[in-house]
Design a protein around this nucleic acid. Structure first.
Lengths: 246, 246
DNA sequence: CGTACGTTTGATCTTTCTCAATAATGGTGG
DNA sequence: CCACCATTATTGAGAAAGATCAAACGTACG
C-alpha cells in the first residue's frame, strides 16, 4: 500500500520544488499521478529520435543521458539526467522526439500517461509553472554546454562537466560532498565533451597529476573544490538553483 | 494610434502560430498586448547576464544574438534571433539572466511588461501553451548546436549554421529561397561555431570554391540547397516546424 | 579622404585526433 | 574459485585540423 509506489514520485516532487516552491496540495497531486514502474538495464533506450510517445518517463533511480548521432556516425551526448527528472516532458508538446534517451546505468523509471500530466497541469497551475521553469533551466544547461564545448580547452571542459555533475548531485542530495560515482566510461565522457576517448584519458591523468581529482574506478573525489572550480571556469548561476551556496 | 503600433506584434503572433495553431481571439489578445517600441543600434545590449528584467522584449525588426563570455574572455554565441521571437521570455520565470542578448544589426523591439504577459497566459491558456512549445523548440535548437559544435568538422559546421539560418528565415517568410543576407561578420560566425575568424574565412573560401555558396558582401546564395544540406548534415526535424518541406 | 573595422593571406605552432597495440577490469559459465 | 571473454583504460607514435601571430588589403562611413 505504501512502500515504493506511494513514494515513488517523491523525488520528482522534490526536484520540481527545487526551482519553484509548491504547496502541499500540489506536491500531493504529483505523488498521486498514476504510473507504472519499469526497471531498466544499462544501455536500454527510453526514447528514440522520431518516436511519438504517449507517456512521460520520470527517472527514479540510476542515470540516463540524451544523445544524437550525426550523419557520419559519431555520437554527441547532450545531457545527463539524475533521479527526479522527467525524461520526455517535451514530447508531450512536440510531435516527434528529436533525440535519443538511453540509460547510463541500471535504473528505474515511472511512466506517467500523457493525459494525467495534462490534467495535473490544468488542475494545478503552479505545477505547470514549476514544469515550465524546470524546462527553462534545462535549456540554460544546454547553453552552458555550447559554451563549454565551443570555447573551453579540453582540461577545463572536462573539469566543468565534473563540476556540473557534482553540483547537481549535491543539490539533489545524492552525493556526499566531494565524492561521487561518475557512472560514465571515458568514451561517454568523450561524447559528452566533443573529444575522443583517448584524449579524455590523457586529460583525466593530467587532472589527477595536478591533484585536482582523485580516481578509483568510477569514483571521483575532489581534493579541492575551489581549485577545480577555477580550472573549470564553473559558475553555477546557469543552474538557477534556489538553495545552496558551494 | 493605429499604424505601426497596432500591427507591431503581428510577427510575434505569426511566430507563435507556427508551432501551435491559435484562434483569432488568442491572436488578437497578443496584438493587444501593451508595449513600447524601441529602436536599437547594432551591438546594443538588450539584456546582460545577471540582469533581473521586468519586461520582455520581442524582436520586430533586425537580428539579435545570445552569448556568453568565458573566464578567459572568449565569447560563445548561443543563438541567433530572427524577427518575431521573444528575447527574454525565460527571464519572466527565472530570477537572473544567465546570458547576454545583443543586437546583431540595427533593429526594433517591442517591450512588453512582465505582468501583461502573465495575464495573457492566464486568460488565454492556448497562448501559454504556444509559448511553452516555442521554448521547447528553442531548447531543441540548443541541442543541435551542441551536436554541431561538438561533433562536426568545420566545413559541415559552418554549412549547418548557414542552412539553419536560411531555413528559419524561409519558414518565417523572411527570405526568398536560396538568397539572404547573413548579418554576421566572420568573427561572429566564428564565435557561433566555436572556431576562429581566420579559420572561418578559409572555410568560407573553400565552400565557395566548391560551388556550395556564393557570396557578395554579406549576401549569401546557395546554388544547390541539396548539396549544401548534405555537406551540412542538416535535417530540419529539430526545428519542429509545422509547415514547409524543403 | 582618412580611420576604424572587417577580410584575406602566409608561416608556424598546438591541440587534439587517429591508429594500433597492450594492459587492466568485470562479469560469466564451468 | 578459476579460466575466459568482452569491455574499458592506457600508452606511444605520427598525422591533421584548427589556432596563433602578424601583416596587408578592402570597404564603409563619418
Amino acid at each position: 500500500m505504501d512502500a515504493p509506489h506511494e513514494t515513488a514520485l517523491e523525488l520528482m516532487a522534490r526536484k520540481l520544488n527545487l526551482h519553484h516552491r509548491l504547496s502541499i496540495a500540489d506536491r500531493q497531486a504529483i505523488l498521486n499521478l498514476p504510473h507504472k514502474i519499469r526497471r531498466l538495464e544499462p544501455q536500454s533506450y527510453i526514447l528514440r529520435e522520431g518516436d511519438r510517445p504517449e507517456r512521460c518517463a520520470v527517472l527514479l533511480q540510476g542515470y540516463s543521458f540524451r544523445h544524437k548521432v550525426t550523419g557520419d556516425g559519431s555520437r554527441q551526448i547532450l545531457a545527463i539526467n539524475v533521479p527526479g527528472e522527467a525524461l520526455d516532458f517535451q514530447n508531450l508538446f512536440l510531435e516527434e522526439a528529436d533525440h535519443n534517451v538511453q540509460m547510463l546505468s541500471r535504473g528505474i523509471v515511472a511512466e506517467v500517461p500523457r493525459e494525467a500530466i495534462e490534467e495535473l497541469i490544468l488542475a494545478h497551475s503552479e505545477v505547470g509553472r514549476a514544469i515550465l521553469i524546470t524546462t527553462l533551466v534545462e535549456a540554460s544547461i544546454f547553453r552552458e554546454w555550447v559554451v563549454n564545448i565551443g570555447r573551453r580547452p579540453s582540461r577545463s571542459r572536462i573539469a566543468h562537466l565534473l563540476c556540473e555533475f557534482a553540483y547537481r548531485l549535491s543539490v539533489q542530495q545524492l552525493a556526499a560532498d566531494g565524492v561521487y560515482e561518475l557512472p560514465m566510461t571515458q568514451e561517454q565522457l568523450a561524447d559528452a565533451t566533443g573529444l575522443t576517448a583517448v584524449h579524455v584519458n590523457r586529460v583525466l591523468q593530467l587532472l589527477q597529476r595536478e591533484g585536482l581529482i582523485d580516481r578509483d574506478r568510477r569514483m571521483i573525489r575532489f581534493p579541492s573544490w575551489e581549485r577545480l572550480r577555477d580550472v573549470a571556469d564553473f559558475n553555477p548561476r546557469y543552474l538557477h538553483s534556489l538553495d545552496l551556496e558551494v
